[in-house]
Design a protein around this nucleic acid. Structure first.
Lengths: 207, 207
DNA sequence: TTTAATCAGAAACACTGTTTCCGATACTTT
DNA sequence: AAAGTATCGGAAACAGTGTTTCTGATTAAA
């Protein structure tokens, strides 16, 4: 037990509180979906008043942002749990598959992060950075493929963004109800994955 | 001037009212964005009570759906205004360009239709059908390319969905603030368009 | 002319994000 | 130790949302 000044202990108390509030909000998100993540419901779960949340997070976006960062961590772990394969093509395909799985296992996180569930929430510098970090496995895989000459040299970040954005499009239209059946959506997704990877891998020198 | 029964005249009155309400809602959508399309603001513009809107549209989704259908018409016209070219590859690229332009010229329609601006609104049978109709130019172009042997025969609807969904992904991430600069987003978009069309065109017989 | 039905306006209900007010608690100072 | 002061959280209020209820007027039907 450290000896702490009042200010230090106060800060730590605030930090603990922040953490438990984020956890409560995350629980509501998982159990009841994004539309149920309201300041009052979080306050009710914490058995406290809404004022505390505003003191600690400034506004709702401040709380949503932390859920966004949590989601980035989960996404990152999803990518990390993909077994690294020698075959670059297969590895990239597995990463794409993991992204689909993430959207299926954590649809509420997905809606919050990329689906516009909180249309007033716009990611800022740090959230965008966290997203890039979550996609790091992807970026390094592409970079390595370039070094090995499997993909023509260009900006690996742009390559990842092209892949990410287009995969996201399929998931988003699916979650939004524009592509009803899950099988149809997966068919489109797999088709797209194959085409994209082939497109990049066929750009070998001499082709 | 037709002679009408009371019931007929009543129905026509209701239909006229529906039309003006949709127009008022569309005006608010264009001038103030999706978040300002609220029942009360529409009622205020119409100088009537909210009850009328509920009588005619059942609930907010009923009104949003009509705006969705309007948006489909506008999108359809955007595609139709693309000059048809003999060169299939160039024509498809022009259609993709028109889709991007639509999202830039009518971002509010885009957010309402595909961006999840009204997260409670899920398109139903008729809205999905209207979307398919809006994409018809795309579908016929792909079908013709298959008949000419420029694209390998498969389901043209799935081909269009693959292209549409992936293009949407770029636009959606851009509008959602995940891809900040418009130039970056357009670069990704164009890159994707080139890759996809190449991917489909390279599947000629004998390849 | 009386009766019955329809329909629109005002107000209310149950929510939302956010702010204000105020009292209790807890550190500071004398 | 006692008085003063600052902080911080709870209750309530404010402004806004989608939606419903109630009620009175209008208008067709009898």
């Amino acid at each position: 037990m450290n000896i702490k000044t009042y200010q230090e202990s106060k800060l730590q108390h605030a930090e603990n509180l922040r953490q438990t509030i984020v956890e409560a909000a995350a629980t509501i998100l998982h159990e009841q979906g994004p539309e149920s993540v309201t300041i009052r419901k979080v306050a009710d779960k914490m058995e406290c008043s809404t004022k505390i949340i505003y003191n600690l997070f400034n506004n709702k976006d401040g709380l949503i942002k932390l859920l966004y960062l949590e989601g980035c961590k989960v996404l990152s772990e999803s990518f990390e749990s993909v077994s690294k394969q020698e075959n670059t093509e297969n590895y990239l395909k597995s990463l794409c598959e993991a992204y689909w799985e993430f959207s299926k296992i954590h649809p509420n996180y997905y809606q919050l992060m990329f689906g516009g569930a909180f249309s007033e929430f716009k990611p800022e510098e740090d959230s965008i950075q966290a997203t890039a970090t979550a996609l790091e496995q992807f970026t390094t895989a592409v970079t390595k493929a370039m070094e090995k000459g499997l993909i023509r040299e260009e900006d690996p970040v742009q390559v990842v963004q092209v892949i990410w954005a287009s995969l996201h499009g399929v998931i988003q239209l699916h979650l939004g109800g524009h592509i009803e059946s899950s099988e149809t959506a997966k068919g489109i997704y797999d088709n797209l994955v194959t085409r994209l990877i082939q497109s990049y891998m066929e750009e070998r020198a001499g082709h």
